[in-house]
Every structure is written in C-alpha cells, then in structure tokens.
C-alpha cells in the first residue's frame, strides 16, 4: 500500500530546503544591512522552519510508517495543547485519557487503510462513547460544555489532521507522478506557504481589515493576495505531485487558500475567547503547535475529500 518517494517528490523536498536556504540568506542580509533592528523573532521563526521541515522531510524520505508516526505525534501535541488551554473538569480525567487513546487507533485505521473506520471512528463512535463515559462518572454540572468542547477539539486536532496521513494510504498507482508522498507534500507546502504569503501580502499592501474582531491584523489585501498566489502555485506544482489535471489544480489551490484562512482565524477566535495570545511556546518564533497547524486543520480534510471525490 505504501510506496517510497518518487523522483518528483524527492526533487520537491530538495527544493524546499533550497527555499529555506533563501529565507535564511534574506534574514542574514536584513540583519547585516540594518544592525539596529531586532530580528530575533524572525530569525527564530526561520530556524524553527528548518527544524520542522527537517524532521518532516526525514520522516517522509525514510519510510511511510515513520511519516505516519510523525503525523500521529503532531496530532498528540495539538490535542494536548488544546486540552491544556481549555477549562476541563477534574471529573473527566478518564474521559480525556480516552480521547488521547483515540489517536493511536485513528492512525492505526489509516495505517491498515481501513477507510470506512477512519471516516466514522471519531465523528460517530467517539461522539457517543465519550459522553457515555462522562455520564457513567455522573458529573452533570458543565456536562454540555465538557462533552462539546472535548469532541470539537478531537475533531479538529485528530480527525481533521489524520486526513494528511490518509493521503499516504491512497493507492499510489493513481498518482504515478508524485506517489503517496507527493500528495502530502502538495497539501503541506501550499497550506504553509499560503500562511506566509497572506502575511507577506498583508504586510506589504494591507489596508482594509477583513475580520477585525477576531484577528485585527488580517486584511483583505493579504487574504486575496495569498489566495491568488496559492491558486497559481497549485496550478504550477500539481502536475508534478498530484493526479489533478486542468482546472482541478487551480481549484485545489483556491480551496487550500480559502480553507487555510478560515482554519487560521478559527484558532484565533478560540484563543481570543480563552484570552491567550499564543496557544503555547513549543515552537520558537511561531508560538504553539496549534498556531502552526491551525490552517492545516481545515485544508487537510477539504483537500482530501476533493481529491478523493475526483480521483479515488
């Protein structure tokens, strides 16, 4: 079921490191030309990218199983960060443990390629199992809030993110150009690059606020510029990494651009509600893990089902 990297996917990975090298050179150049300005944050941000891309690329290059474990671990970190941020009831400790145990199971379904179970395990079975466990404990004060917020977090951090992993389990024969890894690279790269481009466009041309109550620095210019860039990039890259042809490729880019924005402000709204700035400080220069995968929680399932409907 799993296959190794295709030449295209390997070349693309190498290209990512080239891109990082350019980013590091630009930061070094900025530091030299304007020694008075503090670029520590930007520098930490780029360095963290090196680590994240490095770990991800190593896993992808070595084995699909390792990639699966890596993605499962990211889900674990994201769920843990979410549960550490939100108020939880002491009575629910055992239910939370069940939620954690859902991660290895969900990624096991992915590993054995059991699509039917993968797609209903969390939305159906855990949706019923976790409230059942809560009811058995018997604490009714705050029940709706506890049951609702736990399932919401599990959907976001485990169910949605596990769609990235399921791309690896799709039959490789359908995608001779990029292989299974090509799909993951396509989604991950466009999602993260869309974040960066929305930031760069907004920083350069941003004037009109798009959603000031949730994310005061986000602008229409950043949003539209990012979505347009991502759409164009998707069009250019898709033939190398995916089975998407013709109009399918730019539409995939459009979907990733739009969903990435919504996933991003979705976590912003959560943080604003809880009164925190960053979801954590796990990744220097970026904040927490949720700050990094926020867009991915929305782009992964949308891209997956778009692709699945068209080609699998």
């Amino acid at each position: 079921m799993f296959s190794a990297l295709t030449p295209h996917a390997a070349a693309f990975l190498a290209g990512l490191f080239g891109l990082l090298l350019i980013a590091s050179l630009i930061v070094a150049g900025m530091r030299r030309s304007r020694p008075g300005v503090d670029y520590a944050e930007l520098s930490a941000r780029v360095n963290s990218w090196w680590v994240m891309v490095g770990v991800f690329a190593t896993a992808m290059a070595l084995s699909p199983l390792l990639s699966l474990l890596f993605l499962g671990f990211v889900s674990f970190l994201a769920l843990k960060e979410y549960l550490s941020l939100i108020p939880t009831r002491r009575a629910d400790r055992r239910v939370l443990l069940w939620a954690y145990l859902a991660i290895p199971l969900q990624f096991y379904w992915v590993g054995i390629g059991w699509y039917g179970m993968f797609i209903i395990f969390i939305p159906v079975y855990l949706f019923m199992l976790m409230p059942m466990r809560m009811v058995l404990i018997g604490e009714t004060a705050g029940f709706l809030h506890a049951a609702g917020s736990l399932h919401w977090g599990l959907m976001l951090t485990v169910f949605n993110l596990s769609h990235v992993a399921y791309l690896l389990a799709l039959p490789a024969a359908t995608n001779p150009a990029g292989g299974a890894a090509g799909l993951v690279l396509f989604l991950m790269f466009l999602t993260q690059f869309n974040d960066v481009m929305q930031y760069v466009w907004g920083k350069t041309f941003g004037k009109h606020k798009i959603i000031p109550k949730v994310s005061p620095k986000k602008t229409w210019e950043g949003f539209l510029g990012g979505v347009a860039t991502t759409t164009l990039l998707a069009w250019g890259i898709a033939p190398w990494l995916t089975p998407l042809t013709g109009w399918e490729a730019p539409v995939a880019g459009l979907l990733i651009g739009l969903a990435g924005f919504v996933g991003d402000v979705n976590i912003s709204a959560l943080k604003r509600d809880l009164g925190v700035k960053d979801s954590g400080n796990l990744i220097p220069g970026h904040g927490g893990i949720l700050d990094r995968v926020d867009s991915l929680t929305f782009t992964a399932p949308l891209f997956f089902h778009y692709l699945y409907y068209l080609h699998y």
Partner: peptide, 12 residues
C-alpha cells in the same frame, strides 16, 4: 493572566 490578551500574532 495567560500572557494577557495582547494583539494577535500577525502571521498566526
């Protein structure tokens, strides 16, 4: 204070 309600991280 949970790091206080500061302005949002621009790129996050």
């Amino acid at each position: 204070r949970g790091h206080g309600l500061l302005p949002d991280n621009p790129a996050s």
